Computed example of a mutant assay.
Amino acid sequence: MLNLDLITTFFLVFVRMVSFIFACPLYAIPGVPPLVKAGLGFVLAILVTPLVEPAATSFPGGLWGFGLAVVSEVGVGLALGLVCTFFFNVIRIAGQLLDFQIGFAMSAVMDPLSGSMNTLISRFLFFMTLLLYLNVDGHHTLIRALAKSYELVPLTAAGINGEITLLIIRIFTDTFALAVQICAPVVAVLVITDLSMGLIGKTAPQLNIFQLGFPLKIVVGVSTLAMLLPALTSVFKYLFDTLHRDLLLLLKGLA
């Protein structure tokens, strides 16, 4: 005989899992078929369901109540994926600011992974961040956090309040602040380079500063970024720790 409580619990767990997988940049890669992502969510739901407190088969309002419960689980998964998206976009924003200052912005091409126009350094930093995150088992950390979410936010128990709204706004604004901090050293060097080229142009008008400026800024910008790459590992570690902390704060706020 079918256990309706177990089937209902599994379905709600599966909905939250799949929503997170389709929203998190680490798993939501457009090149991966949707069936593979759904299959990953299905396998994770099978593993996690025995650890989750069973959901009741009777919902207030009948079918409408069950529909609201599904929407609630979708919202929790999407909220967790949205926070992950914010932090991975920090690197994209920092790279685009660098490309704009260096002069690579005109080389922007359509990136099928993000579905938007991305520049050279932006894509390079983003892929490097993904590799570092995989190297420190960040994908396992996200799966553990998702499994932990069923303890902090039981099925059908999620709620939205003013604190959650303020938290998401704070995370959104922090992404821009972190992006500016990451690219600030290189941008400062490029600004000094621009000022130096302007002074040279005033003292030696016969030089074509506009023509010399493009290759010089590329050399200076790329060289400065190469020298700063070892130091960026500590920045990435701070970024990952902040991501995990904010995921925990979000789950506590949704409870």
Rank of each mutant, 00 (worst) to 15 (best):
F214C: 01
I143S: 12
T119P: 13
I160P: 07
S149K: 03
I91Q: 04
T141Q: 08
L47C: 08
G95P: 13
A94D: 00
I29Y: 14
I192T: 11
A145Y: 01
N3T: 10
D241H: 08
S19V: 10
A79T: 08
K252C: 10
F86C: 05
F214D: 04
L254W: 09
F104Q: 01
L4T: 06
I21F: 13
P230H: 14
A204I: 12
R144F: 01
L44T: 08
L225M: 11
G253V: 02
F176T: 12
P30G: 15
K217T: 03
A55H: 09
L98K: 02
F172P: 08
V186P: 00
L35C: 12
L232W: 13
S122F: 05
F87S: 05
F86I: 05
L190Q: 00
V220Q: 07
F127G: 09
L82Y: 14
L190E: 00
D246L: 07
T57H: 01
A179Q: 04
L26S: 07
T173P: 04
M106D: 07
P50M: 02
F127D: 13
G138W: 02
P205K: 02
A79V: 05
P60V: 00
L228V: 11
R92I: 06
T57K: 06
T119H: 09
G77Q: 03
L225R: 03
P33C: 07
A56S: 13
S116E: 15
L251H: 02
P50D: 02
P60G: 01
L216Q: 05
G213I: 01
F22V: 09
M117N: 12
L134W: 06
T193L: 09
G138E: 01
K217R: 13
P230C: 11
R245C: 06
T224E: 15
A23C: 10
M197W: 01
V219A: 08
G253F: 03
A94H: 00
Q96P: 09
F86N: 04
L142E: 07
V71P: 01
L247N: 03
I143R: 10
A79I: 02
K237Q: 14
L4N: 11
L80D: 08
V43A: 15
L82C: 13
W64I: 07
L225A: 05
I218N: 02
G201N: 01
L40R: 12
V191A: 11
G95I: 02
S107N: 09
I169H: 06
L155Y: 05
L195P: 08
P34G: 15
V13G: 07
T175F: 10
E73S: 08
L134C: 07
Q211L: 11
L6A: 14
E151T: 14
D5P: 06
V191C: 11
V90T: 04
I200A: 09
M106E: 13
V186H: 00
S116A: 11
G213Y: 00
D5N: 08
I102A: 02
G162S: 13
A38C: 05
V18D: 04
C24R: 09
T173M: 11
L167D: 14
L247D: 03
L249R: 10
M17K: 15
F10A: 11
L243V: 00
L190A: 04
A94M: 03
M17S: 10
T141F: 03
P205D: 05
G201P: 01
